[in-house]
Design a protein around this nucleic acid. Structure first.
Lengths: 217, 217
DNA sequence: TAGAATTGTCATCAATTTATTATGAAGTTG
DNA sequence: CAACTTCATAATAAATTGATGACAATTCTA
């Protein structure tokens, strides 16, 4: 079940959408013009937004430009079948695009597709007493959440993705800091130290003398 | 073991591929649309890419045209069985082509074939219970990682490259220490001792009296 | 087979490399 | 704008490496 925000000024269409969503087990909230949207968002957190391009007061594009939907996936609804609109919508970060009039089956299919995509498989891994949930960006040690800083998490991610492979400090800087980072390679040491301590990984993260580090699993 | 990047929007298919790859000892990372790909590449370096042609946002062909996979081998996945697509994919530098729906056996066979073909540089040798991965700089004895120091590894490398050939201490110093090294030739003895012990190579590394050493395989 | 020559092994220690803590700059949050 | 947080760098402590010397063991040869 997902909560869908339907932003559509034509009540008949909005009702039709809502009905169909309910048929397949979702719940919806209707909004009929662009001004209402931000108010509603305060009390209704949608998993998906169906957003008409042509709206009273504020059109769908400008709502997108305001980024009021944050990370929530958005599907544009529009009567316009022009390529320009489509490109514009997708550039603004829309997840899909449906041209009116549409088959309800198509609508539902796209809704499902976007919802599925927005909820990626939960990637997680357990090493010793540590569990790492990549999507939630959450790491626990003995079931208690460990506060990792951004860098620490990224470094951990890189080590896990390249587990059992010795990585030089330069390589680690490339992968975790970015290819455009030019700093002291000793920085890596400091962060390795922190990971070891926070995750009790003293024996998991091996130092390869004169080379770098390796996460052994 | 190889790291495979699976770029495929249909989760069911992606999961199926991942499961099968894992069955034969590979590891995989799933990506569900074209936009995610470049981000993921920053922290995950695949040995092989399985690339769906039909993807949300950016199709497989345009990803290939951007050359973001660099030298990494790519196998296209597609539902289209048209010759044109096939030619196009291969022209863009794909290493192989699989038409959906495919037999998992066929998939795995092609994956192995491409990996084998693409990795002529993966130098790797097994002697008794010891395996030596030159590129990863990793040596195992009975499947457990053996910690070799830098010098020890270099000496081992030289011995393997000259296996079954007797090498004088001076020659070994030249090859493993460098032509500009001028030290006691007895140093070699100490390191030979260590290699013998660490790798249980007492009978593999033979002493040639008044000459030097030979690794017999 | 004696004993000289050669090789094996261990312990040591200086040089190098890594670990850890401290500091302050830059950015964030309330 | 003050209190925090993060994190790169600096500074210092700790560790590892590996050449060397000492002596034991082995091998060769006369």
């Amino acid at each position: 079940m997902a909560n869908v925000l339907i932003v559509e000024d034509e009540k008949a269409i909005s009702d039709l959408i809502l009905m169909n969503l309910r048929l397949v087990g979702h719940e919806g909230r209707q909004v009929f013009d662009g001004n209402e949207v931000s108010e509603v968002l305060h009390e209704f957190q949608p998993d998906l937004v169906l957003l008409d391009v042509m709206l009273p007061y504020k059109d769908g594009f400008s709502l997108m430009e305001q980024k009021i939907f944050d990370g929530t996936p958005v599907i544009f609804l529009t009567a316009k079948d022009s390529v320009i609109d489509k490109v514009k919508g997708l550039k603004l970060g829309a997840d899909d695009y449906i041209v009116k009039p549409f088959e309800t089956v198509e609508l539902l299919a796209r809704v499902e597709a976007v919802l599925r995509r927005a909820k990626p498989t939960e990637r997680y891994i357990i090493i010793d007493n540590v569990s790492i949930h990549f999507d939630k960006r959450e790491v626990t040690l003995n079931n208690k959440i460990v506060d990792l800083t951004n860098r620490e998490f990224e470094l951990l991610e890189v080590l896990i993705n390249n587990r059992n492979i010795a990585l030089s400090r330069d390589k680690l800087l490339d992968l975790a800091w970015g290819y455009d980072y030019f700093g002291d390679t000793r920085t890596v040491d400091v962060h390795i130290t922190k990971l070891r301590k926070k995750l009790e990984f003293e024996n998991r993260i091996k130092t390869i003398f004169k080379l770098g580090y390796r996460l052994e699993v």
